[in-house]
Design a protein around this nucleic acid. Sequence first.
DNA 1: CAAGAATGTCACAATATCGTCATAAGTCCC
DNA 2: GGGACTTATGACGATATTGTGACATTCTTG
Lengths: 238, 238
Amino acid sequence: MRAKILLVEDDASLIELVTYNLEKEGFDVVRTGDGEEALTLAEEEKPDLVILDWMIANLSGIEVCRRLRRAPATANLPIVMLTARGDEADRIRGLETGADDYMTKPFSPRELIARIRAVLRRLRPALSGGQLEFAGIAMDTTAHRVMRDGRTVQLGPTEFRLLRHFLEHPGRVFSREQLLDAVWGRDVYVEQRTVDVHIRRLRKAVNAGPTGDELPDLIRTVRSAGYSLDATPAVQAA
Amino acid sequence: MRAKILLVEDDASLIELVTYNLEKEGFDVVRTGDGEEALTLAEEEKPDLVILDWMIANLSGIEVCRRLRRAPATANLPIVMLTARGDEADRIRGLETGADDYMTKPFSPRELIARIRAVLRRLRPALSGGQLEFAGIAMDTTAHRVMRDGRTVQLGPTEFRLLRHFLEHPGRVFSREQLLDAVWGRDVYVEQRTVDVHIRRLRKAVNAGPTGDELPDLIRTVRSAGYSLDATPAVQAA
DNA sequence: CAAGAATGTCACAATATCGTCATAAGTCCC
DNA sequence: GGGACTTATGACGATATTGTGACATTCTTG
């Protein structure tokens, strides 16, 4: 899966330079030079990361950063700030406002790429690593292959994306609505209960043991909240 | 919860400077100037983050970084590299080897702190939110999980919300009416006595000891006033 | 184009949880 | 100690939520 980057910048030559380098590295790039528009695009395009210049039209980069953090839909979006202002105070302010990294112009495109990859490696392992692993489940995202304790697991496309989402955020509980957003896509209309059915299909595939017996269920149902990938068995004897 | 930082550095004045600033900001600091020892400490001390100088004794910083990433126990440990070498190539090499951030000497201690916080904010949501804790009860709101003295506690949805409310305002006494408002919702009509029943269910779940014995009750009944989460023993000689 | 796979919904079964009540057990004040 | 209250507890029917199998439809892929 290609990662999508939202580039918020109004210097034409920089746009060109950065876009060229990002695309060469296999990223999809969405651009704007306008602060207000950046907020809209962040919601609608669902980028995997934002590169944000401090000096842009309509809203300062720092204000965009603050609003992105405040809106629930984008609160977790990784942000790399980019600016001509090299003051220590500015850098600290940027980082404390919620930016994940901060680079000062002039900068090396290769270092920018390296820093973006470092951030994505953390936030969306599937985007840069290719290998995800949790409690005996291993997924190779590039080869589209899943193994449980060494045995290959056969999954349909939707179950694959569902599992990948869980593997990217192990332990965390997602509501049906959140799962529909993240796995099916924002503007798809399907019944919430459809999630249940795919959870069941995923469980069936992942928990199937070698001789028909059941392996421990790693998908936890949290009543009235959703589901999570979880190693701890629901019931603890003793 | 205080975060523990492993500082791998062999310049005495830098050690002092960084340690002073980290401790002032509320971090626990473990130090070494030796690459081999750094690997051992990373395993044994289980730090939340490593600050790693490139030039250290026995093993280069980059090699330490590589080995930390390779060992399963430390593969996810956040690493901030720190060095006098300002070459772009070095920075990129550091980031690509698995460092989460990279700073060049001379650097501002405050910026270092800001970057450490930015990394931890991502990696350890527990350190900056989502985690509630009081007198041996720990609740992870994103994982929807509750522990008492390390043992997981099983709660129904209503008891979960009830406990969360108490954990968000420890020590404070709430009337049944206030609890109904906060936990059930403003426009729900249920008997006030229903609160008693859920308090009882919550107590039963939270105070259950490992072998059937009772742990100290942390929910205090305040006669003709309500309930509160409270560590003070129920019986007070007076 | 046809077979097979994948998908989304539904109806119904299986559980878990909820709210209420009756009754027991405390607590306070005189 | 005896009311007058207030809270604790166990039981139970009512509800809400989730699990499951089946099925029609759409998508893939030869």
